[in-house]
């Protein structure tokens, strides 16, 4: 008897695509949206690249003892992480919340957890792109990193990303979108100027220097400089970032409101 091979049954209507596919689709969507946004691109890539070129070409501000470019690149990488994980994420999540996007995606097959994972993956994707561009530009400008420190640098960048995304969600989940916009930008400027990101805190007045050591920005800057200049994983900055990440995660998960 000759029978045709059974056709694969079509999935019934109303079946969700597999979890991984949904999360990757949202990751691509979020990444694409960020990369299409001129302002975001400016903050994520162009401003850090300009800062790096500016630091490499000038003698001030002082970055401390050592080769100037070797001190500058880790600081600019820290700035890039803060821009994407904190400022960019706070603003985009704040407005998504305001416009009901979080609610709509929460009831779609993607769901709330899928949305959070996709946002984190999108942040990491952008950061990878930033790392390649800024690192490449640094190498072209004469950066000599301790390659042994690459692993430590990646660990710090990941923990720093966690801490800053959690802080971003703490803002975005509680304040009005305009408030998030203003505050996220203000904090970015303050951290850039006084937070020990690009200008190492050793070059700042003693009082400020001690404060900056306990800020996530100073910890990330210190940790990345330690990794790429000396090649090891610095314990105190890592600990500072873990504490900020833990506190911000606990607070954000208790206070985050999905609707405006």
């Amino acid at each position: 008897m000759n029978t045709a091979p059974p056709a694969a049954p079509a999935p019934p209507a109303g079946t969700a695509a597999p979890t991984v596919d949904r999360i990757l689709a949202q990751t691509r969507f979020e990444t694409g949206t960020l990369l299409r946004n001129g302002e975001q691109l400016l903050v994520a890539l162009i401003l850090p690249a300009m800062a790096l070129v500016g630091l490499a070409m000038s003698q001030s501000p002082s970055l401390g003892p050592g080769r100037r470019i070797d001190l500058a690149v880790p600081g600019v990488l820290a700035l890039a992480v803060i821009s994407t994980a904190f400022t960019g994420q706070a603003i985009s999540t704040g407005f998504d919340r305001r416009y009901g996007v979080l609610r709509l995606l929460g009831v779609s097959p993607l769901g709330r957890r899928g949305l959070l994972i996709a946002k984190a993956l999108a942040v990491l994707t952008i950061e990878l792109l930033q790392g390649v561009v800024i690192g490449g530009l640094g190498l072209a400008l004469g950066w000599h990193p301790q390659w042994m420190g690459l692993f430590a640098g990646v660990v710090l960048a990941l923990v720093g990303t966690w801490a800053f995304v959690a802080l971003a969600l703490l803002l975005a989940g509680t304040l009005r979108a305009e408030g998030v916009l203003a505050l996220a930008n203000l904090i970015w400027i303050l951290l850039l100027g006084l937070g020990g990101v690009i200008v190492p805190r050793t070059e700042m007045p003693p009082g400020l220097s001690h404060v900056a050591a306990l800020l996530p920005s100073g910890a990330l800057g210190d940790g990345l400089r330690e990794a790429f200049i000396h090649g090891h994983l610095a314990g105190v900055p890592l600990l500072v970032l873990v504490v900020w990440g833990t506190v911000a995660t606990v607070l954000a998960s208790r206070t985050f409101r999905w609707s405006d």
Partner: peptide, 28 residues
Amino acid sequence: GVMLQDGGLPNATKPVRLLRHLAAFHQS
């Protein structure tokens, strides 16, 4: 399927890109 009163549409995207994206959450 849900249509919210306040829309829930991401602001920075174009309609067809958004709809294709939402369709990708479903098998058929």
